Simulated assay, not measured.
Amino acid sequence: MSHPASRPACPPATTTGTPAHPTALPTVGVVGAGRVGAVLAAALRGAGHQVVAAAAESDASRARVAALLPGTPVERPSEVARRCDLLLLTVPDDALPNVVRVLASAGALRPGQLVVHTSGRHGLAVLEPAAAVGARTVALHPAMTFTGTAVDLPRLAGCVFGVTAGPAERGEAAALVADLGGRCTWVAEERRALYHAGLAHGANHLVTLVTEACEMLAAAGVDAPADTLRPLLHAALDNALAQGDAALTGPIVRGDVGTVAAHVAELRARAPQALPAYAALGRATLDRVVTDGRLLPIRAARILEVLDAAVPVAAPAPSDVS
């Protein structure tokens, strides 16, 4: 994979679909043409890479290849790996270790080949079987949700990729991110799980939170819960990203014990499925506003009593040490 030596270590974003190189680019193969893999391969194709093969086991994956990578042959994973210079492994986290081991033991990987996975949780250790045969390895995770359709392609512009790479592969990893239209943030090998937990907590749990809020509003008789929440959530998210804890508003920050108690009573009666999350997030919010001095501890203690009465905190498991 040849890139100009003057290329910056973490280049600015480019527009997806615009070739970033004046010279021939490495051929690409993708194992796991799911929502992420098919889209990233299509973006690289738009940047001038030739996608020579894809592994797609399900009907949905084969349909994505047909839609996003027309004309690309669908092959077995080992054949995909043998045919390409740049191998994208876009399989589920738990499947990744076995996929790498199988490809390496089958002789499908070779010295000098660039093997890249897109798992947020894993770093370079999971690619050790590939490194052992002389392949160069990179962990490259897009911090974005994917639909697996062409809608995702323009969304890659400016997308942040959490990248872990050795010193010799950093330039190529950064160039690859630029070809995808994104920008990179470097994540240490030992911090990959924490990096991924932050993304999952912020994005995945946000979906659960918003869905539960919609259910509460529906139970309250609101005709269009999503439309009611949309402007409030947009403002809250923008403020939280810009201001952090300073953006907190509501009854806990104000110390409104009676309001929190009324919430708990109604949730217990009409939306009990949301009560554990409400109590847990209420406790977390209390900790933050007491720490920054906006709520007096005595007031916080009264709110905590209400939350603990609604959903008691589980006692820690007894130690096995005798």
Rank of each mutant, 00 (worst) to 15 (best):
C214V: 12
D179I: 09
A150V: 14
A125I: 02
P167K: 09
A165G: 04
A139P: 08
A168E: 14
A157D: 15
R121E: 08
L180G: 08
R192V: 03
P154M: 12
G148F: 10
G182V: 05
G182N: 05
A188L: 07
V207D: 09
A188G: 10
A143H: 08
G198P: 00
L199K: 00
V138E: 04
V177G: 05
V133S: 01
V126L: 07
G202N: 09
A178R: 09
A218K: 08
A130C: 05
A165K: 00
Y195C: 10
G166M: 04
G181M: 05
G134K: 01
V160I: 15
A168F: 02
V177R: 03
C184G: 15
D152S: 10
E128C: 00
T164C: 13
C159W: 11
A143T: 14
E190T: 12
L209E: 05
G181W: 03
V138K: 02
L199E: 12
E169Q: 13
N204Q: 03
G182F: 03
R136Y: 04
V151E: 15
A197E: 04
V207G: 09
A174W: 06
R192T: 07
H122Q: 10
V187G: 05
V126S: 05
M144F: 14
N204H: 11
T185R: 09
G181P: 02
A178C: 05
R155H: 15
